[in-house]
Design a protein around this nucleic acid. Structure first.
Lengths: 336, 336
DNA sequence: GTGAAAGCGCTAACAT
DNA sequence: ATGTTAGCGCTTTCAC
């Protein structure tokens, strides 16, 4: 049984050099004579030495670990962002501490505190808004934070995302353009500023451009889940709504299936446009027409931005809000 | 700006006690006079002291962090396991370092080494098999490992899962029982022992019980992805196959959609049973008849088991392979 | 009930 | 190019 006790000191002793030299070769410091380096390398291999990242973290004050807070890992939207985050993180030799937040402010605060206690070098925040307490928490530290795939009610945080307002406007306008008398706005919690602000504004703008009055009863709020969407089918049918812009794919998929199962033909009897272009939009039948977002890239670029911030690159403060291009893809949930 | 420099020493000085005492109150050690405790607590609050988990980890040799290796975070099967893992981990005050492995042996080895360097207290392994090198790596350490949601070609590792062989047999038998002349076995990589071993055996057993000859040409291997399933529809149609047991939900969903898009009616012209009961089976139409697994629980119990192993509870060595009950749910991809 | 002091394994000046 | 020596912030005997 291999004892866990081979440290930098052991290696130094065996190789007849100092700990500093071992440290140098381990860290790729060029100031080591090739022969010495080789000798140390040999001993390292022979002893199967593995540097202790915790000790290193304590001494260097860098853990090469970043915290990622995610509302729900099983949500395809966040999972695809997370994939991009993880890939870039591993590219830059960072590890990810991933924690589910359940979109619960209490829990978010708890996990962020915990992340900070673990001395993460940075944090990627996926979620909808930040509470005042969290804002304070974040302000009291100089750990960089990047918001990925959302806008948050605190413009002080760097973020990577698309222009949700413009996208929502286009989606709504698309529906209007093909003759919809009225277009509903079916949304996740309006408590989130992305839903009550950006997207709703875009929706209203499109209405205005199309000379339609905004009708409050057409704003249908849910918790944003598949189940909620499925359940809302009934209300949609009763209200005789014929078209809707939906703020989330899970929600849209649920609504679509609910409608279909209730005998409504999409897109003939009902037209639907969703927001995120996750796998769900292509999994269901009919496939859902949607705003497209470079999900993986949003995650990847968030992480890339975070690495810069962690390196103390505070240049171009204006570039801290990265707005990526979005698109739109016509599929089967809208008429030709 | 809050300086990052309030340490246990600062608190000790302010509270006029020793570092040891501060450590005691922080760690809930009862050997502290209530008044002293209160005084320390006050100072902690006042100074907004936060213990440094890295230093703690170095001193105590426990990081309260576990590594989780996952093939693909966007796969609903693994994502649901991960949710269970994360919930229980946070329940036991552990954090999760999550790393995508892409099911690539090289990368798996790399991430496991990294996890070990970070001194994780344990590892949850999701994946299909372990390479010899990984096996050695794991053997050279005493960090406990639990395999979640799979069987692995190394029985020495504790695991939490269902009886894949029995489940596959039931699924195949179900298809046979309703008159299928032949049932195909559509699978992810046969390189994985779960596919070439457990499930295939179950499939063959069902065939034998139904007095059907095993036909090699009915074993259709893919990479297990949605895309692969979608693409295989053509072959299924050409071979005039009428029923299949599929080893993975993404694969099954792809196949189903491919078939449907090609004009094949499921279940009238083709019957399909899948294996994992993830969200995908309920998202598509027709919904997919499937073996059911307590996905969340598998993750949760894996993590629970790991906590026991990390606590050095090596009792009942026989209980280290936890086999959970599975079920079966008839949905719309099979005839009534 | 409380304190003193020795590490934990490494990095980072600073010397040489 | 290499070695010496302080720490990093905490836990943990061991005394008292």
């Amino acid at each position: 049984m291999e004892k866990q006790s081979v440290t930098i000191y052991t290696v130094a002793r065996e190789a007849r050099v100092s700990m500093a030299t071992v440290s140098r070769v381990v860290n790729g410091n060029p100031n080591v004579k090739p022969e010495t380096r080789q000798k140390v390398l040999d001993v390292i291999k022979q002893l199967n030495y593995r540097p202790n990242a915790v000790a290193r973290g304590l001494a260097s004050k860098k853990t090469t670990t970043v915290g990622v807070v995610i509302p729900d890992i099983t949500d395809p939207y966040f999972a695809e962002l997370a994939l991009g985050i993880d890939d870039v993180a591993s590219m830059y030799k960072y590890n990810i501490i991933l924690t589910n937040s359940d979109s619960d402010d209490e829990k978010i605060l708890k996990v962020v505190r915990n992340l900070l206690a673990k001395q993460v070098d940075g944090i990627i925040f996926m979620g909808h808004d930040v509470s005042d307490e969290l804002k304070n928490e974040l302000a009291s530290t100089n750990t960089p934070v990047v918001v990925a795939g959302s806008v948050v009610n605190d413009d002080s945080l760097p973020s990577v995302r698309i222009d949700y307002q413009a996208a929502a406007k286009e989606a709504t306008a698309f529906l209007l353009k093909r003759g919809a008398e009225q277009v509903a706005y079916i949304t996740g919690p309006l408590q989130y500023s992305i839903n009550s602000g950006d997207r709703l504004s875009g929706y209203k703008n499109a209405l205005a451009d199309g000379n339609k009055d905004f009708d409050d009863s057409l704003v249908i709020e849910t918790d944003g889940s598949y189940q909620a969407g499925y359940a809302k089918a009934k209300e949609i049918i009763e209200k005789e709504i014929k078209a809707a812009y939906v703020t989330d794919d899970s929600l849209a998929a649920g609504l679509l299936n609910g409608l279909t199962d209730a005998g409504i033909k999409v897109p003939d009897d009902f037209e639907l446009v969703s927001s995120n272009d996750t796998k769900y939009t292509k999994l269901v039948r009919p496939m859902i027409t949607s705003i497209t977002q470079p999900l993986y890239d949003i995650g990847a670029i968030s992480m890339r931005l975070l690495t810069k911030l962690m390196d103390g690159d505070d240049s171009n403060d204006d570039e801290k809000n990265v707005i990526l291009d979005h698109g739109f893809v016509e599929r089967q949930s809208t008429r030709k």
